[in-house]
Simulated assay, not measured.
Amino acid sequence: MGRIILLIAVGIFAWLAWQKFQSSAPQDRRKLLLQWLLIGLALVAVLLAISGRLHWVAAAIALVLPVLGRTLGWLSRHLPWLAPLIARHAQAREEQKKRDEQPGDADKTPPLTPVEARRILGVSADAGREEIIGAHRKLIQKLHPDRGGNDYLASRINAAKELLLRDI
């Protein structure tokens, strides 16, 4: 009975993971797979430890590590043409990481003009300081990110207020 419950739980987890995988962005899929692999390995290790069958895993690791070390040493000695390929791949990953860290032109917002700032806040050209502050307060209460708005709208409203108050 316990195995059936465990099998059902694994099936539900696999189905939810597949749904998450399909709905994720392509650049996030590799990260998701790695996370799920590590979580799965940890769960298997815990289950093996609970059932008392973890000893064969330790023996397998003890066997694989020296074999892996010798294989990598053999590959580096007998296939020297692999080293430039590995270095080129590492360099390409570093360049991609740098490009990802730098904001692109799509993230930049165009500067506000006084006419556009008045239109955003809904005030006239001869509006005073109190009217601008009141219009800003009314809009920001509706469109603040904490109340269902978004960062872009809140930043545009704040920029409009700053521009108009600077001009007064």
Rank of each mutant, 00 (worst) to 15 (best):
R77Q: 13
H144M: 06
R118G: 06
I132L: 05
Q27I: 06
M1Y: 07
D107P: 00
H144L: 04
P114I: 05
S51C: 03
F13Q: 02
A135N: 01
A9I: 11
A159L: 02
R99A: 15
Y152T: 00
I140G: 00
V44K: 05
A92K: 13
L32A: 02
L164R: 01
Q27P: 01
A135I: 00
W56T: 14
R3S: 06
A160G: 03
A83H: 10
L43N: 11
G40N: 05
H55K: 10
L121A: 02
S24H: 04
G11P: 01
A159F: 03
H55I: 07
A127R: 01
A106F: 11
F21I: 02
Q27T: 10
A106L: 11
A62C: 09
K161G: 00
L139C: 00
Q102C: 02
R53P: 00
A59V: 06
G69I: 04
I133V: 08
L63D: 12
R118K: 12
S24Y: 04
Q91M: 08
P110F: 07
A9W: 07
P110C: 02
A62H: 06
P103R: 12
T71V: 11
P110T: 08
V123C: 03
L63V: 14
L75F: 14
P103G: 04
L6N: 09
A58M: 11
L143K: 03
V57E: 00
F13C: 05
A42Q: 01
D151A: 12
G134L: 03
I8K: 02
G148Y: 04
L7W: 08
L85V: 10
I50H: 08
P66H: 10
Q96I: 10
G69M: 04
E116K: 03
L75M: 15
P66F: 05
L121D: 00
I39Q: 07
K142W: 03
W36T: 03
L79N: 10
A49C: 05
A154I: 05
R129L: 12
G73Q: 13
V115P: 01
L65G: 06
D28S: 11
H89W: 11
L34M: 13
F13D: 02
S76L: 13
R29F: 12
L85T: 04
A106S: 14
E130S: 03
L164E: 00
L41F: 13
R88I: 13
